[in-house]
């Protein structure tokens, strides 16, 4: 008996630490993969709406469904949408834009500010499919990073892009963005853009784990700043967590899973969290879930040993 209790490690809440085990049944697997499936659906559907409108003339209420690409588009012939980061760069070139695209950028900015900033990264951005593949392969291959890069490098690249836009008079990141290249060429015809995508894939696979999305991409950094105020967050149910660490293994931004901070505020507060939900589906204790920033931490049901004295 004593030997057995030694092998079962206990978490800080006194409960045994259980590792995540992939269910054997298909329904069980689908349940684990559900958010991944939803994300891929959203990513594909977004591209499909653009492609269908452009090439097959898709209409709704006699208006083109979604005309343009992820840089700027028109929904149903009258709702403008635009990439707020691209519009910010153009704004800094001091050339005066039409109000339409500014309104479009405002609409998109508001949407991501409500949905969680980097929701863009894991739910919409087509590069995510490429870098997720790199990271999936990497979990199965014995490859170590060639060098380390500070995750805040992307903030410096973001600042540089804005500075260069102002000095050079062209939207600095838009002109070299592999993200824009990728969706533009998927929708408008292929060129050499795939070489940039291959570069990112190989960089993430062989050089630096989560290299592009997690360290360098200034668009992700921009939405990270937006996400710092976003109401939709991954909630952290303090009493159930056994600190098993399964969430950090799958998280593309593991620094956001700072359990000390999460315990204090009851959620993953960092804007760097992409709300991809990988952690939610692998957590063996159902500690993590989507919720609102404003939710009160003490609302969660406390187990007996953690009851706050009245």
């Amino acid at each position: 008996m004593a030997v057995e209790s030694d092998t079962v490690k206990l978490g800080p809440n006194g409960k045994p630490i259980r590792p995540f085990v992939m269910p054997a049944t298909l329904t069980g697997k689908l349940k684990v993969w559900r958010l991944l499936i939803y994300r891929r659906l959203v990513q594909f559907l977004t591209l499909l709406l653009f492609f269908g409108t452009a090439h097959w003339g898709w209409t709704l209420f006699n208006e083109p469904v979604l005309m343009g690409n992820l840089s700027s588009s028109t929904l149903l012939g009258f709702i403008p949408l635009a990439d707020p980061y691209a519009v910010l760069q153009i704004f800094l070139t001091k050339h005066v834009m039409e109000s339409e695209v500014v309104l479009g950028a405002g609409i998109v900015l508001l949407a991501y500010a409500l949905l969680g900033g980097r929701v863009w990264c894991s739910w919409v951005c087509p590069i995510n499919m490429v870098t997720d593949l790199s990271s999936w392969l990497r979990r199965r291959l014995p490859i170590s990073d060639v060098f380390r890069v500070n995750r805040n490098t992307r903030l410096i690249i973001l600042a540089l892009s804005l500075l260069i836009s102002a000095i050079m008079g062209v939207a600095a990141f838009e002109w070299i963005s592999p993200i824009s290249m990728f969706h533009r060429e998927l929708i408008f015809g292929l060129g050499m853009g795939w070489t940039a995508i291959l570069g990112i894939f190989l960089f993430d696979l062989f050089i630096l784990r989560h290299g592009w999305c997690g360290h360098l991409c200034p668009l992700g950094a921009f939405y990270g700043l937006v996400g710092a105020v976003a109401p939709i967050r991954v909630r952290f149910d303090v009493p159930t967590c056994t600190h098993c660490g399964e969430c950090a293994k799958v998280c593309p931004e593991p620094q956001v899973l700072n359990l000390k901070k999460a315990t204090e505020v009851g959620m993953i507060a960092s804007g760097d969290c992409t709300n991809c939900g990988r952690c939610i589906t692998v957590c063996p204790e159902d500690t993590l879930s989507f919720g609102l920033r404003t939710q009160n931490k003490t609302d969660v049901e406390l187990p007996l040993n953690l009851k706050i004295p009245s």
Partner: peptide
């Protein structure tokens, strides 16, 4: 040219219309 280079957001809506 300078204004065009600065302002074009490369969305392709002109191409489609």
């Amino acid at each position: 040219t300078d204004g065009f280079n600065a302002k074009c957001i490369k969305c392709g809506q002109c191409v489609r219309d």
